[in-house]
Design a binder for these strands. Structure first.
Length: 305
DNA sequence: ATGATTTGACCGGC
DNA sequence: GCCGGTCAAATCAT
């Protein structure tokens, strides 16, 4: 786990909030601007682009700061979970075993993959830009929350063997310990394994700093890094039973209290690029929506870091 | 109807 | 033998 000196952490958080508030204000300005009639040919005034640049710059700085405050660790998966062999034993697993009719013979039906090609991070969001399909959930010894298992949705069509394991941290339920496997599919929506390995946020910083949201690169690097504090489970009654659907989507759909769906509008502005939204995870293009900013502000206000 | 999720069983590594 | 990862039928959601 990375550590940061408390005073530095405090400064970073303050700057983070300043950046986010500024971004929010500029976004509001942009909203007002976009509500006005468009210019000839349906184009937006040049000042809109300036505001967009400002917003992106603000987010870029914020993400940089977040990068410092988030604990992002690179621990070999082989040592990822301190699971001392001691501890309470679960006994229900070996209970009555014939509720299911005639399970077909599965002896030797699969090989457990080596973990050498996996890597673990602790992030505030489950989302990583890939499309995943949940295939299992398991209670883990000495862990309060179950571990969820996901595989790449492109396994059937591209044979991608990537899997990821997501587990809420016991101490910090809004943080997720995520173990990634390597993607072999070509449908990476946001960033490659390598870039994620270096820094989960960096690709977006690069993109932001390009200040060119309509460039062709946007096909693969649109500024929608799903950093969101809305990482709650989709079902309240099963706090640990989150589904594979990314919560940001729900967050965006829940209805904004004060801000319209500006990011949808912004994306629409770039809609001359086909089909940015090509999979379920791209619905997280709302990931940087106003809810996030509002929550950050609320979070800062309510929570003494 | 189809695809996604849930969940108990199965399997392999330690 | 225990524990965690995976399978796959059942169930749910759209």
């Amino acid at each position: 786990m990375g550590t940061l000196r408390p005073e530095k952490l405090c400064t970073n958080r303050k700057r983070l909030m300043e950046e986010l508030v500024m971004g929010r204000d500029v976004a509001a300005q942009l909203r007002d601007l976009l509500e006005k009639p468009t210019g000839p040919g349906g184009s937006w005034p040049a000042s809109a682009e300036g505001l967009v640049v400002k917003i992106l710059g603000s987010f870029s700085a914020s993400l940089s700061l977040l990068k410092c405050t988030c604990e992002v660790c690179k621990i070999p998966a082989s040592v990822q979970v301190g699971s001392p062999s001691s501890g309470d034993r679960r006994s229900e697993d070996s209970g009555e075993s014939s509720k299911r009719p005639a399970v077909k013979e599965r002896r030797g039906c699969y090989k457990r993959r080596k973990t050498s090609d996996t890597w673990m991070k602790i992030l505030p969001t489950m989302e990583d830009g890939h499309a995943w399909r949940k295939y299992g959930q398991k209670e883990i010894l000495n862990a309060k929350f179950p571990r969820c298992y996901f595989r790449c949705t492109h396994k059937p069509d591209q044979g991608c063997l990537a899997t990821k394991q997501v587990q809420k941290l016991q101490e910090e339920p809004h943080m997720y310990q995520i173990t990634f496997g390597h993607h072999t599919c070509t449908n990476t929506l946001k960033f490659s394994q390598h870039t994620l390995d270096c820094d989960p946020i960096k690709p977006y910083l690069l993109n932001f700093e390009s200040n060119n949201i309509t460039s062709d690169q946007d096909h693969h690097h649109h500024p929608s890094y799903p950093i969101s504090v809305k990482t709650e489970c989709n079902k309240e009654e099963t706090e640990s039973n989150f589904s594979g659907k990314f919560p940001v989507v729900a967050a965006a759909a829940e209805g904004e209290e004060e801000e319209p769906n500006m990011w949808a509008d912004l994306l629409a502005m770039r809609s001359d690029h086909e089909d940015v939204i090509s999979s379920t995870t791209t619905t997280s293009s709302h990931g940087l929506d106003m809810d996030f900013l509002n929550e950050c502000v609320d979070f800062e206000r309510d929570f003494s870091w």
